[in-house]
Computed example of a mutant assay.
Amino acid sequence: MKPSHETALSKVPEVTLLFWAIKIAATTLGETGGDAVSMSMNLGYLVGTAIFAGVFLVAVAAQIKAKGFHPWLYWTTIIATTTVGTTLADFADRSLGIGYAGGSSLLLLLLLASLALWYRTLGTVSVESISAPKAEMFYWVTIMFSQTLGTALGDWTADTAGLGYEGGALIFGALLALLTLAYYKTKISRTLLFWLAFILTRPLGAVLGDLLDKPLADGGLALSRYSASLTLIVFIAACLLLFRHRPAKTAH
């Protein structure tokens, strides 16, 4: 028997303030964790991307195979997308030699292509419409591209634009505040606002991650990538243990 619409959708969490708090922490962890593997361990961006891509594929397969909503599994998969996004963006920006502008442009095209193909195939890109493995695949691929694009945008803003980590955090925080205002005060598509917010939380996490682990001379707090990553893991685990996590409701 095929799973019902309600059962399939129950694997996606309800989008609340808690969701966004964990999302920002997870994206920050993606920055510190990705840098820890590719830079602190001196494995390089390509090897780091391969490692995290493997974790991402295993996590997505487990998420799709699951029969219900499991908060730990869902957020593990999100963290996997944000770590592979970090190393993949760094590889595109630096190892391919196309710079932050080129990397961001390439990743934006990939994200738009993923959303377009998703919409053309299923007729919607709303997270409330996920009711089959095919929709889940589009969901996770789109999330992975959005995380990667967010990393590139965060690095571009902090480095190339010369705003620094604090300036980048203020810019993306202000943009997210505007999206929140639009959510409550306008009738702009909730699906559009969700994906914009999802993309913008990633560069916010990128600059926050850099703020934590970059040297004092570069405007960071000079924490080790390992200690910063461990702190974020403890915060996410506390949120999962202390608060109730409900699945999203079905769109009828």
Results as ranks from 00 to 15, higher is better:
Lys67Asp: 15
Ala228Pro: 07
Leu43Thr: 07
Leu178Cys: 02
Leu204Val: 01
Pro247Arg: 02
Thr7Glu: 07
Asp218Leu: 08
Phe172Ser: 06
Thr160Cys: 01
Thr231Gly: 12
Ala251Asp: 12
Tyr45Lys: 07
Ser229Tyr: 02
Glu31Phe: 04
Asp213Lys: 10
Ser10Arg: 03
Thr81Ala: 10
Asp218Lys: 04
Cys239Ile: 03
Ser105Pro: 04
Leu18Arg: 07
Lys23Pro: 09
Thr157Phe: 00
Val55Gln: 06
Ala248Cys: 04
Ile233Met: 12
Leu96His: 07
Ala217Phe: 10
Lys134Gln: 09
Glu136Arg: 05
Trp118Arg: 06
Thr124Val: 03
Gly48Thr: 11
Phe52Met: 14
Leu43Cys: 07
Pro247Met: 05
Ser114Phe: 00
Thr81Arg: 02
Gly219Gln: 06
Glu31Tyr: 03
Val12Leu: 08
Thr16Phe: 01
Thr250Trp: 01
Val207Thr: 10
Tyr100Asn: 10
Ala101Glu: 11
Gly173Pro: 08
Leu241Phe: 02
Ala152Asn: 05
Leu88Trp: 02
Thr180Pro: 01
Pro3Gly: 06
Glu136Tyr: 15
Ala53Ser: 15
Met144Asp: 10
Ile51Tyr: 10
Ala132Ile: 09
His245Ser: 09
Leu43Lys: 05
Leu179Arg: 02
Thr157Arg: 07
Leu221Ser: 13
Lys2Ala: 15
Ala135Gln: 15
Leu221His: 07
Ala182Met: 00
Leu216Gly: 11
Asp218Thr: 08
Thr160Trp: 00
Gly209Glu: 09
Asp213Tyr: 08
Trp75Ser: 00
Val37Lys: 13
Ile79Thr: 10
Leu176His: 02
Leu181His: 04
Thr77Cys: 05
Val127Ser: 11
Thr201Cys: 15
Thr151Arg: 01
Val12Asn: 09
Thr201Phe: 05
Leu176Asn: 07
Thr250Ala: 12
Ser229Trp: 01
Leu212Gln: 12
Tyr74Leu: 06
Asp90Cys: 12
Thr86Gln: 13
Thr250Arg: 05
Gln147Leu: 12
Phe19Ala: 02
Ser4Pro: 03
Val55Lys: 05
Trp75Arg: 00
Ile22Cys: 13
Ala132Ser: 15
Leu106Thr: 09
Phe198Gly: 12
Gly68Leu: 09
Pro13Gln: 00
Leu111Ala: 11
Thr157Asp: 04
Thr121Pro: 01
Thr16Cys: 02
Thr250Phe: 03
Ser229Asp: 11
Pro133Met: 14
Gly33Gln: 03
Asp218Met: 09
Ala92Thr: 13
Gln147Ala: 14
Ala80Asp: 10
Leu107Ser: 10
Leu193Phe: 00
Leu29Val: 02
Gln147Trp: 04
Thr180His: 09
Val141Gln: 04
Leu216Arg: 14
Gly102His: 02
Gly168Lys: 09
Ile233Val: 14
Phe19Cys: 04
Thr86Ala: 13
Trp20Ile: 11
Leu208Ile: 13
Thr83Ile: 07
Arg120Gly: 13
Ile78Thr: 05
Arg190Val: 01
Lys11Asn: 03
Leu179Thr: 04
